[in-house]
């Protein structure tokens, strides 16, 4: 994996994410586009990182804007951030295997609004392939 470029970080608030039940501390990274889980891991240009302490999200979730979409750089970021669980859409086998090898839980082929998806992940009820029908807002597409 090559070194990833400088990343621009912005604070980002998602009120819907604050309260939900969980069991133990977990750092979750979701590849996102608008309010949805991004369709592809390798083309994701924005990720959201949230820490769930067992009962709720700790602090505000952070969003990180990638300087360019790159599966390698995203893998580096995931390792650097010491993420426990990655939630994404389509991911190529080699990146999936790499992350699994690094003992990171990867939930792929997830489709839908990332708010309820994060809730499910926090409750340990999210699985690969989960589809949550969209409620399109402001004409934005996933």
């Amino acid at each position: 994996m090559g070194a990833h470029n400088a990343l621009a970080e912005t604070e980002y608030s998602r009120s819907c994410l604050i309260q939900f039940k969980g069991y133990c501390s977990m750092k979750i990274l979701v590849t996102i586009h608008n309010n949805f889980v991004a369709q592809r891991f390798d083309l994701a240009s924005e990720v959201l990182i949230a820490v769930h302490d067992g009962n709720r999200i700790v602090d505000e979730p952070r969003t990180i804007i990638m300087s360019r979409p790159s599966a390698e750089e995203l893998c580096n970021l995931i390792i650097k951030e010491d993420v426990d669980t990655v939630i994404c859409g389509g991911i190529e086998e080699r990146y999936y295997k790499f992350l699994i090898w690094k003992k990171i839980n990867v939930l792929d082929s997830v489709i839908g609004d990332y708010g309820p998806i994060l809730e499910l992940a926090g409750c340990r009820r999210l699985t690969s392939g989960t589809i949550i029908p969209f409620s399109l807002e402001n004409g934005k597409m996933p």
Binding site: G89, P133, P142
Partner: peptide, 25 residues
Amino acid sequence: TGFSSSDARGIYGGSIFRSNLGDRG
């Protein structure tokens, strides 16, 4: 794609195809 018709029905097409066709839609 690996998605069944019943799962895909009503879902935004791009999320099922997961293509590289540029900006969404």
